[in-house]
Design a protein around this nucleic acid. Structure first.
Lengths: 194, 194
DNA sequence: CAACTCAATTGGTCGGCGTACAATAGCCGG
DNA sequence: CCGGCTATTGTACGCCGACCAATTGAGTTG
């Protein structure tokens, strides 16, 4: 985690981690099956920073869990892309999942629909974090290619219309509005159209 | 794209692509700045398979765009994680964005809120695809570690309750229900709580 | 207290990766 | 015919994840 905070995910290689621990690279494989497994444990370590809400209504508790998860995700941008794809379901992910599930049942959502609701909330929270981190980072101008000019020309002035408000608006809106809409829909009990 | 379909994203290395083209590895850098740029073009090539809806109401057109995008995403699972994080905004992504924006305005959503709505829809569509592909793939049992047993034990019987319905239910529900809720919320005009 | 056991660690190595650098080949307008 | 430029090439550097056989060392047992 220290290595990740200092120099990003690229710095988290088996060799660098081993160096940091004063250990040979191969030794890590005695504790972790894979590099993917190591990243999985990093993800769960990140989720350890999300507190468990106790007081408040069901909606407030869910909002707190999602907001705090989002905060932790944005604090570790390099892990975000993996959080959605790799469902490692470590102990902390499980803890937050249980919290959300019981809150949903408290809201009158029955078991099967509650699981779907949890998944929708996860997709929105992690997805919006991924969207925001992707828009924020990568400020390296040296990697830009010569054809960048051609491409911009092909897009015409439309790019400005679309991407300019995107960069001006805060990503909080995307998260907060989507969260409110999803929670509204969840308790409305309406079923999906075919 | 052929290399991606045949052997997955790992096969899409500068060297393998060059081999397939009968060319030296470095030659590619004359046409593409980076490997990331190459993946960006792959993403837009994938989105080329999403047709442009013409007839139907605004809601039906949006649903078609999102459903077709989802179909294309699920057909190219290896690209999904990058679709959210790297907003390359190629010509096809721009085309679909414009379609959705005009449909939203048709629904009475004004400019600024329309952009937010588009982003929320993108997050849900790509995010749910990422969630589903992550759950589907990675069926390799050899990579499992010895501590897998310990971890499963620590989770107790709760893992079954949470992950068993997840794997039985179709990912279509997550996508369709979330999409319906978001569209409902979009036109309701309700503002986000602080 | 010595012998045994077994997880943890190690050196060495393999194949592959992205990409920088300098030099070359091929084409095209003047 | 030629000068310039783009596309291409050979070579090479440094890094990566992962495997193998061999060794260490701490804890348990007799």
């Amino acid at each position: 985690m220290a290595l990740l905070r200092e120099d990003g995910l690229d710095a988290v290689s088996m060799r660098r981690v081993a160096d940091r621990l004063g250990v040979a690279p191969n030794s890590i494989y005695a504790h972790v099956a894979d590099k993917a497994a190591l990243v999985d444990e990093l993800i769960d370590a990140m989720l350890a920073g999300v507190p468990t809400p106790i007081d408040g209504g069901w909606r407030e508790r869910i909002e707190r869990v999602m907001r705090d998860s989002r905060r932790e995700l944005l604090a570790h941008p390099d892990l975000v892309p993996f959080a959605l794809v790799r469902q490692s379901v470590g102990p902390n992910a499980l803890r937050l999942g249980e919290i959300t599930l019981t809150a949903l049942r408290e809201a009158g959502v029955d078991g099967a629909a509650a699981v779907t609701g949890l998944q929708v909330l996860l997709v929105h929270t992690i997805g919006s974090a991924a969207f925001e981190t992707g828009r924020t980072q990568d400020p390296d101008p040296s990697a830009r290619h010569r054809r960048g000019r051609e491409r911009a020309a092909a897009f015409g002035g439309v790019t400005a219309e679309l991407s300019e408000p995107i960069s001006r608006w805060s990503g909080d809106d995307v998260f907060e509005r989507g969260l409110a809409w999803l929670l509204d829909g969840l308790v409305s009990g309406r079923t999906a159209r075919p």
